[in-house]
Amino acid sequence: MAAIEHARRLQEHESGASFASLPGAEDGADETQQKALADATPPGWSYNPSAWKERRWLVGLAIIGWLAALYTMLGQVGAVTLWDPFFGAHSSYLVTHSAISRLLPIPDGALGIVGYSADLLFGAPGCDERWRKTPWLVILFGLTIIGLGIVSLALTITQGTIVQHWCTVCLISAAASTLILGLGIGETLASLQHIARQWRAGVSLWRALRGTGLPWR
């Protein structure tokens, strides 16, 4: 019996019947549009963490971080001397050429470029309903910003403790990563709540992640 109910709801979902049956859906285009906008907010939320209004700050900060990482890498391969008005170019040089920055076969600036690129790739695309239509993308985004945030924190600690010198561009990048994590992680929470609700309703994890589960209301 439950399976029949499930199939019926699924059919409704795919044919868009559940959306059309919303009260007021037939009253003029304006109201429908407003309804659709309000609908994009996750249940129980006072704002929509996937809205472009929220995400545009993340994209801006990711671009700042990406440029800082590119500049750092250019400094590390010797193409430029890093600008540092606070601690001096020598201090920046010591940080970006320290043993920590050479832990990997590639300079850590290059790792930063990869990180911020992933951030933009997973954070920029999609619509205001990313949190439920592409939960897999939002979760990849969440993992990326958590990784970037923690690596930035660790690198900032090593600047002060192991290298004992500072680098302004590196600190700018760390600040960008921290802000991105704080501003962006809400969307991941909305996706995880959505997946948990779908799971509870008997949808497989795979379908929930792909965003092809039951209607969300």
């Binding site: 129980g44 809400g186 929470l189």
Partner: peptide, 8 residues
């Protein structure tokens, strides 16, 4: 925020 992290 829909009950926060514990809601999951």
């Amino acid at each position: 925020m829909g009950g926060g992290w514990s809601a999951i």
